[in-house]
Computed example of a mutant assay.
Amino acid sequence: MEITWAQGVFAFCGGVLAPATGILCVWRLRRQDVSPLKGFVLGFGTVFCALIAVSFLARFIFPGYPRVTVPEPIAISFTIPVFASSILAIWLVVRKRSCSTRFPFGGASALLTLYVAGIFAAYHMFSWPYRKALPWSASEVEEHIWTAGFLPDFSYSLRARITEEQFLDYVARFELKSAGKREYYFFERDEAPRWGPSPGAYETYRREDGDWSMEAMYDNGIMWVTANET
Rank of each mutant, 00 (worst) to 15 (best):
L134C: 01
I61N: 04
P73E: 04
E142A: 15
P63V: 07
V141A: 03
I90A: 03
P81W: 07
K181A: 09
A89N: 00
I52C: 12
P152N: 06
I61C: 14
I145G: 00
V82A: 02
S109W: 10
S86R: 00
T101I: 15
Q166E: 10
F126A: 00
P81N: 09
E143A: 09
R161Q: 06
F103E: 13
I162E: 00
P152F: 10
I162W: 01
P104Q: 06
L112C: 11
H144V: 13
A75Y: 02
T69G: 10
A179S: 10
L158V: 08
A179N: 10
F120S: 07
R159N: 10
R159I: 13
H124E: 09
P71W: 04
R67Y: 13
R59K: 11
A117T: 11
S85G: 00
W128G: 03
T79V: 11
I87N: 05
I80F: 13
L51C: 02
Y65I: 04
F56Q: 08
D169S: 14
I76R: 03
L112S: 07
L57T: 12
Y123A: 02
T163F: 12
I61V: 15
I90Q: 02
G180W: 03
I90W: 01
R161W: 05
G118R: 00
I80Y: 06
Q166S: 07
G149Y: 09
R95Y: 11
H144C: 13
S155D: 13
R67L: 13
V68G: 06
L134S: 01
W136H: 13
P81T: 08
I76M: 06
E143S: 08
S155M: 10
W136I: 15
I145F: 07
I145C: 09
A172Y: 13
I61S: 08
V68Q: 06
L134H: 04
C99Q: 14
W91Q: 09
A89W: 00
S98L: 15
P135R: 00
Y123K: 05
I74Q: 04
V93W: 08
T163D: 09
C99S: 15
R161S: 12
C99V: 15
D153K: 07
F62K: 07
L88R: 02
F83E: 00
Y170Q: 01
A110P: 02
T147D: 13
S157G: 14
E165L: 07
A160L: 06
D169A: 09
K96N: 13
M125F: 12
T101M: 15
G149S: 10
V116Q: 04
L112H: 04
E72K: 05
I80Q: 10
R131A: 12
F167Q: 08
E165Y: 04
Q166T: 04
T79G: 03
V70E: 01
R131N: 12
S155F: 12
T113Q: 11
G107H: 04
